[in-house]
Design a binder for these strands. Sequence first.
DNA 1: CCAGCCTGGTACACCGATGTTCCATTGTGG
DNA 2: CCACAATGGAACATCGGTGTACCAGGCTGG
Lengths: 185, 185
Amino acid sequence: MTAPATGVRSRTRQAIVAAAVTTLASDPSASLADVADAAGVGRTTLHRYFAERSDLVAGVTEECGRAVAAAHACARLLDGTGREALLRLCREYFDLGDVLALVFNGVVELDGALSDDEAGLSVRVCERGHDDGSLDPGQPALWLVNVLWCSLYSGWAWMQEHGSSRHDALELLLRTLDGAVRPRG
Amino acid sequence: MTAPATGVRSRTRQAIVAAAVTTLASDPSASLADVADAAGVGRTTLHRYFAERSDLVAGVTEECGRAVAAAHACARLLDGTGREALLRLCREYFDLGDVLALVFNGVVELDGALSDDEAGLSVRVCERGHDDGSLDPGQPALWLVNVLWCSLYSGWAWMQEHGSSRHDALELLLRTLDGAVRPRG
DNA sequence: CCAGCCTGGTACACCGATGTTCCATTGTGG
DNA sequence: CCACAATGGAACATCGGTGTACCAGGCTGG
């Protein structure tokens, strides 16, 4: 069951989760049959790995948690000023792609996917930015995290709707976010 | 049918649309029975006014279009600089409340609810801001509109999640947006 | 090569949402 | 007051998604 006996099992499972990520990202109410099709797998097989829909969502959530934690690691959140770290985090988050969409459309709850420590990281980055004077003191740390996520969504939607390149969208996004969080002149 | 013969009919219809707005805003996949309950009306009656779900959504969309057009009128979009107009527009949009949620969760397509003229208003405001130097020339007008909407979502979500007052959320939101769109120093 | 795991397809029961019909009741306007 | 519009409730058929059971074919490892 849980043990990846053959290696075949774990590969199949991974294919299903990956298909679920992309499918549910583009349509949160997609049927399990859609996911199975996208994974190139029979609906029966999908149910063999994930008995209920909620089990699949749990698998997807777990996957998202790993991706976000990896982004945290890449962003070197302790280097430089708080604002610099926040912008690096934004870069890394933006690369999450479909994971971003899953968070936005409410398929996964990030809180449930991260350890308490990971979950509080971005807030602490903003608090550090307040202390070192690199982030606008007029905006609470929690609010700044909120702004980060909404900016990410903005860039993501922009890319989807306007067929803009990933790079262009990211640069635009960083420019906007930088202005939004920088201390007022 | 279409004629509001008695005045009773139009009042009932309006009650249903209003209930649909609030219900679908908080849960886009709410059943028609939920909407009928919220309206204090039998499910049969609801079907009498809106034969199919899509008809109800059309009614809701129409209502949203009216609300947005009213917001445009209140914002005096031709006064002052482009940035000032954009911030006023943000204030007015923020007051739309549930309508905002309906747009965010994809229940209504604003494009279908507005005349071509109304739909292009916000873009023209941003172009004017480029011309008069009050908006960052490094961000295209369409992108700025995108940022406006994402900021609205940010403020709206903040209010919902943190029980913050409408006023506090709006001030925070305007501060952030102003920094985001202002020309770089 | 052969036993056992993995798989896909079909069939089935179940459930909730939807849309329709019919009828009895209410109440509003003339 | 009375006819007719408007409403609500019950009953029904339908549909799509979900979850389960069964079975036959195929791949793999020993």
